[in-house]
Amino acid sequence: MSEYALELSNLSRHFYLKNGAFKEPTLLKAVDGISLRIRPGETLGLVGESGCGKSTLAKMILGLLEPTNGDVLINDKARGSSSRLSMSRQLQPIFQDPYSSLNPRKTIEQIIRLPLQLHKIGDAKSQQKAVKDISDLVGLPERLLKNYPGQLSGGQRQRVAIARALILKPSILVCDEPTSALDVSVQAQILNLLMDLKKELGLTYLFISHNLGVVEHLVDRVAVMYRGKIVEQGTREQIFQNAQHPYTQALLSSVLTPEPALGLPEVLDSSTWDKAS
């Protein structure tokens, strides 16, 4: 067994933002030298406000975006060293928006079955059986398999996305805000499902969220991201009971404020931290 399921070393991604035809483009360091390690079976929560680079990081891990710098290691092997096909058997994504993550022109069965077809696993019959089994596992009623995504609710769609991610039996899931597009009542169901699956299948999670509250009950460790950098990481207890960094404290207090609508308090000025650290 590999020492780390997922290892990021000094990973960066820069974007050049165009400012019209005659001005110099500005450099945006969406992800700026991030190193992270996740042990097999561990759940790491990656938390930070919107726009801090979480999805960019996830895309690089998934091979959807080339890093400007640094490496992604999956089960101790560099992402680029083997094909997408073999990487995708080890690592699968769950995306944020279950309305755009399922092809509207395919039936649920076709969607869940696609990974098996692309990987040429089994014959038609065994594939159909696998689809039924995995649908059972994620709590998706069998009668929905012949339907199109447009006929399903948000929660059901996210179950379909989870089934599709799991059918190749990967060991790692990268969940990029898997519940933030869902109704609050449905969020809890999906989070529970993800936790049950983790126990049952021994999965490793990178669980991305902009909300510390969402990850509190799920994760073993937390990494806090701000403007492309990890500003603090530690075990769940360390972060939730003894946060050191002012940004983490601000995130926590926004979670703990009685009025969630108040959002982040305006104490955020990274220049003071940079001097301090």
Partner: peptide, 24 residues
Amino acid sequence: MSDSTSTVSTAPSANTFLPVVPEW
């Protein structure tokens, strides 16, 4: 938002009763 996880319920996926009119 924060208490959505503290009141985690194990409700079954009962939200399966959308009217299913055939596409055609």
